[in-house]
Design a protein around this nucleic acid. Sequence first.
DNA 1: CAAAATTAGATTGCGCGCAATATGATTTTA
DNA 2: TAAAATCATATTGCGCGCAATCTAATTTTG
Lengths: 163, 163
Amino acid sequence: MSDKRDQAETDDIPAGALALDQQLCFAVYSAAHALNRTYKPLLDPYGLTYPQYIALMTLWEEDGRTVKALGAKLGLDSGTLSPLLKRLEATGYIVRARDRHDERQVLITLTDKGHAMKRDAVAIRMEIGRATGCSLEALQALTADLQALAGRLEADQVHDDAA
Amino acid sequence: MSDKRDQAETDDIPAGALALDQQLCFAVYSAAHALNRTYKPLLDPYGLTYPQYIALMTLWEEDGRTVKALGAKLGLDSGTLSPLLKRLEATGYIVRARDRHDERQVLITLTDKGHAMKRDAVAIRMEIGRATGCSLEALQALTADLQALAGRLEADQVHDDAA
DNA sequence: CAAAATTAGATTGCGCGCAATATGATTTTA
DNA sequence: TAAAATCATATTGCGCGCAATCTAATTTTG
């Protein structure tokens, strides 16, 4: 049973089989970093980070959300969002205010500067699109695939919690 | 020129056009986090983080690299790798040693524990594959698309540096 | 050969991202 | 209604990820 082939196999398998999903996880990892690095010089002039920009995006979609609602949309908890939102308030993009009807909640509202950034985002959007060098159809297909992947992974995590 | 349509357009465009690439960047962002969260419970028992695991993967592929070579492969600089590798050494997966022929370089070598982890990675690989719920072909196609995207983004960044 | 320039890593500071915990407000329950 | 449970957010600690800076070793130049 435990002859030389055992050792040989465990040393051989990874070169081929392991490469499969490891390439996927590394590809996602690398693509995320590459996107981050592409956005950085475009956002620096505005004093925004990439996660802060993504948070603004969700506010452009629907203003006046609670921290919890934002967190649900972004997949982030208060440990990440609280300090991030304080910085967005410090740089003047949003205002944080306790909900008068439920003092536990904090409502996030865009300032004029926050709304104005939506317009400048058009130029950023075009630059990113150019940098990807992809057709709109290709980007849409890739986006759909990634959303499906993330959805299945998240569903699987919930499934594990229940077990 | 600056009539009401300007304001109206800038408020209307984002809802449609902005959503395009923003969905892509958000999808990559979310997929990366989802993958990270899926790996976490699988790696925790080994005292490994996801980036540390990725670093080990590249060492399984080729052991004895310098910090710089590892950084080139991973797209990370010494500011990230130095502490990460010190932790991998502290947990016994690798050994760091100055190159005798060029004392500036540090050679990273897998320990027995580091090599052994390669075998346990097979089970992790299968679990990740299951969690994605994707066929091998689908994963390969997605991986190829992401690699192409990352490649174009990185090439574009180099292009900007030259300008 | 000596000075200058380059190179490889390490360190520091800041902003995520997440687990664990704390605090205060609201709701449930006894 | 008072105590217990729940809920929303904030805080702390640790590990990335990256820019900027520092140190020591090597190479290049004069």
